[in-house]
Structures are given as C-alpha cells and as structure tokens.
Amino acid sequence: MKYAAIAGGVVVAVIGTLIGVAHFSTNPQKWVAKRYSTVGYHRYHSPKPPSLVAAEITRKFRPIDRLTDSAGTYLQYSKWVVGVLPSGAGSDITVDGPSDGYNRYASHVGGHWQRPGSSGWGRHGGASFRGGGSGSGK
C-alpha cells in the first residue's frame, strides 16, 4: 500500500513536470523574459543585433509568419506577436497578445496578416473563432 502511494505521487509529479515544460516550451513570452533584459511590461532588450535575436527566437519557437522591414522583424504566433526592433547596436523586443501586437505593428503587418480573432490566430495565421452573436450559425 505504501509503495502504491509513492508510485502515485511520482506519476503525478512527472505529469505535472511534463505539463509545465510543455507550457514553457510553447510560450515565447516566458522564454524571452528569461533570456533578455527586462525594460518594461513585456518589453526586453538585447545587446545583439535584431537579425540575431529574431533568429534565436525563431529557432526556439517556429512562428506562423515572419515579416521583416526596415523598422524591424515581426513574428506571428497563435497567441503572441513578437517585435524585434533595432535599438542602437542592440535590439528592443516586445511581446504582446495577438490584438495588442497587431495594433502596435498594424502599419507594418496590417497588409499581410489578418486581424486576429477572439482567440488569436489559427495554425496558418487565419483569425480564430470570432464569437457568435445574434443569428450566428443559422
């Protein structure tokens, strides 16, 4: 009986760890926060150039889409928008939810990305479920 309780506890601990690792590994905001210097709410800085920072992030998290223009690089994820912008010799990095990120960078991504739905973007960058409303689904 004692061994069964210990085995059960070990199984629960392992499952909890796997869930935690899976969540961390799919959340660019937490990874960016651990890797780069925090300068504000969901704002970070790196002494590395934007191209290198964007490459580091995309190696760890494959974006749905990536846009680069003269102002920066924008990475689209289902629940996040990561902006990597030049700042002196380094980079400023922002991590926003879909709507805030889209609105922040609309002048750069608006002609290419769809406006996100209520739950962000789907796997291919299309707006997710936008909600119902009167007469929805009829």
Rank of each mutant, 00 (worst) to 15 (best):
A55L: 03
P28Q: 03
G97E: 11
V82M: 04
Y77P: 00
Y44P: 01
P86V: 09
R43I: 08
N103T: 10
K79Q: 15
Q114P: 05
R123F: 13
V39H: 03
T26M: 10
F61W: 03
R115F: 10
G135C: 00
A4K: 13
R43Q: 14
V95A: 12
N103Q: 12
I6K: 00
W113N: 02
D96Q: 11
G110R: 08
R43S: 11
D69H: 04
R115V: 12
T38Q: 13
I64L: 06
S118F: 13
S119D: 13
Y77F: 14
G20M: 05
G111C: 07
V95L: 08
H112F: 09
P50F: 06
A22H: 15
H108Q: 11
S78P: 08
D100Y: 11
Y102E: 00
F61K: 03
E56W: 00
W113Y: 09
L85I: 10
S99E: 14
I57C: 09
H112K: 14
D100P: 04
H45F: 14
S37L: 11
Q76L: 12
K30P: 02
V53W: 00
Q114M: 09
T94E: 04
Y41N: 15
G132F: 01
G83R: 04
V39Q: 10
A54K: 01
L52N: 10
K138R: 15
K48L: 15
D100F: 10
G8I: 06
G132K: 02
Y102I: 05
P86A: 06
D92P: 00
W80M: 02
V12W: 02
A13S: 12
K2Y: 05
P98Y: 09
T94S: 15
S107L: 09
G72A: 04
G8N: 02
V10L: 11
G126Y: 10
Y36V: 04
Q114I: 09
G126P: 02
R59A: 15
A22C: 06
G125C: 01
V39S: 06
Y3T: 12
D65Q: 07
G72I: 01
Q114C: 05
S119P: 00
A54G: 02
G137V: 01
S99K: 13
I6E: 01
H42P: 01
L67F: 02
G110Q: 04
W80L: 07
Y36T: 00
Y3W: 15
V12S: 02
I57W: 08
S46I: 06
D96M: 08
A7S: 11
K34S: 14
S91R: 03
G126I: 05
S91K: 04
G20R: 02
P49E: 13
A13N: 06
A89P: 08
G117F: 03
D100T: 15
R35V: 10
T73K: 02
E56Q: 11
T94Q: 00
H112G: 00
R123H: 11
A89G: 08
R35S: 14
A7E: 04
V11R: 00
A106N: 12
G117R: 01
I19P: 00
W80C: 00
V81T: 09
H112E: 11
N103I: 09
M1R: 08
V95Q: 08
F129N: 12
G101Q: 06
F129I: 05
I64Y: 03
Y74A: 01
V32M: 03
Y74G: 01
G97P: 04
Y41S: 15
R115M: 10
I19W: 14
A71M: 06
A22G: 11
L52S: 14
